[in-house]
Design a protein around this nucleic acid. Structure first.
Length: 452
DNA sequence: CTTAGGG
DNA sequence: CCCTAAG
């Protein structure tokens, strides 16, 4: 049973979220790309923030000299990068640290290369035999059950904050009768980014209407829902959730929903009327028979929840009011640009979008993994993480040797602090003892090596 | 690419 | 987990 609480994301109603830059006679407005009602929002707010998403839409009025346009784009994408990482708690955390270089940078470490120094089985055995601890020679490989795509991906669109409440089944095997349902709660959707340009001579009222046009255009006809697992888009609609990996016991899965514009080409401006929202709701309605999903009507959900939502509502109602008033010309002086003259052009592959890099999801080590790690380190020592990876986590694609090294670091730390201070799934004391022992042993070992 | 450490 | 200087 799916429970989805869908609401279109806050757009740019909060003035603080509006980023404006001046280009000659033009003002460029961008939504900051996410809304406050996503739980963990961690970002540096600065003037450069570019809520970079793929589904940008340009509302053009008049001509825009190409050089100015280029300049605009360059300027906009010159900002800091954004990272979107939906976390387990159902929040998408956004962080832009400005340091990340390129998307897909070593997304996945490849261990296929045969290093000359890679120890042969013979050498390895010899090495292992030197180790003082008794080490059972059983395998301790970890399968990457879901072949996760922890490769950082650029944001193909905007993500939704998803709260996942999985039923309590245990790992592996087919789901039991009671575990066939996955409960999902989508806390919010992010509306694909809009790009609005309007002359500084335009009125606030026309700006509102222009924005509204853009919103309704994007929402109106083209949206469909994309599903992401581990940051990777799930394309096969025929697969079952279970086959896809969306099942019980997937608290650690990274499940994301996204609204994606259907049209890659120019979207004609919507006709008059406020059908956009209604149709948006329709587009979110799942196909009958797929699953039992109940959707909260967007307009309803908009009225509930965080302050930002309220802000949004009031903002939208303002816009609506504007539109409701027949020809608000009498109230506001509307510039020559008529809404009809506006063209809405989605920016699907704007260069800046590729700066979107997703942080890998956090995947706490299980006790079994810790066990394997400890065992491997006991054998190999603390300075050969690549071999540890190869030996014990070769099939766990989401664990890099750096991860293992880091985990060992935290394990040592964990072992040293009092049990009360430890968090997460408790690691058996026996394992922690082994950690300390191995750490001490290999520390001495390394010291010796250094002396030589 | 790997290591090793700080962030 | 991320980032990165070093090797």
């Amino acid at each position: 049973m799916l429970e989805m609480d869908c609401k279109p994301h806050a757009l740019f109603c909060s003035e603080s979220k509006l980023k404006a830059s001046l280009f000659e006679d033009w003002i460029t407005l961008r939504p900051s790309g996410h809304a406050d009602n996503i739980e963990t929002v961690d970002r540096d707010d600065d003037e450069n923030d570019t809520g970079c998403t793929q589904a940008a839409t340009t509302v053009k009025a008049f001509r825009l000299p190409s050089d100015v346009a280029d300049q605009r784009i360059k300027n906009l994408s010159a900002g800091r990068h954004w990272r979107v990482s939906p976390n387990l708690n159902g929040g998408a955390s956004f962080k832009n640290d400005g340091k990340r270089r390129s998307f897909f940078r070593n997304g996945r470490t490849s261990y296929t290369r045969q290093r000359s120094q890679r120890i042969s089985p013979f050498n390895r055995r010899k090495l292992f035999n030197q180790f003082p601890f008794s080490v059972p020679d059983r395998g301790f490989q970890f399968e990457d059950k879901f072949n996760s795509a922890d490769k950082r991906s650029n944001c193909d669109n905007c993500t939704a904050a998803v709260g996942v409440a999985s039923s309590v089944a245990r790992r592996h095997s087919q789901p039991g009768p009671r575990d066939r349902n996955v409960k999902l709660r989508i806390k919010s959707f992010t509306v694909p980014e809009l790009f609005v340009e309007i002359p500084t001579t335009a009125t606030v009222g026309s700006l509102k209407r222009t924005v509204m046009e853009a919103v309704t255009t994007v929402l109106g006809d083209g949206l469909h829902v994309g599903i992401f697992l581990q940051g990777k888009k799930v394309r096969d609609d025929s697969k079952t959730l279970f086959q896809t990996g969306i099942s019980q016991d997937h608290k650690h899965r990274n499940l994301g929903f996204a609204l994606e514009p259907r049209h890659a080409q120019i979207i004609p401006p919507p006709g008059p009327g406020e059908q956009g929202l209604t149709r948006h709701a329709t587009s979110l309605t799942p196909e009958p028979g797929t699953s039992s999903v109940s959707l909260v009507p967007p307009l309803t959900s908009w009225n509930s929840g965080a302050q930002s939502d309220l802000h949004l509502v009031s903002c939208l109602s303002n816009i609506s009011a504007d539109r409701t008033i027949p020809n608000s010309q009498s109230l506001v002086s509307i510039p020559a640009i008529s809404v009809e003259a506006l063209a809405v052009v989605p920016f699907h592959h704007r260069p800046g979008c590729h700066e979107f890099v997703q942080r890998r999801i956090r995947r706490p080590f299980s006790v079994a993994e810790v066990e394997a790690l400890v065992q491997a380190v006991e054998k190999l020592g603390t300075g050969r993480w690549r071999d540890v990876k190869l030996g014990a986590f070769d099939n766990a694609k989401h664990r890099t040797y750096v991860d293992l090294k880091d985990k060992w670091k935290t394990l040592v730390h964990t072992a040293r602090i009092s049990p009360q201070q430890r968090r997460g799934e408790p690691v058996p004391q026996e394992l922690l003892d082994r950690v300390l022992a191995a750490h001490a042993y290999w520390s001495r070992h390394q010291a010796k090596q250094k002396l030589k």
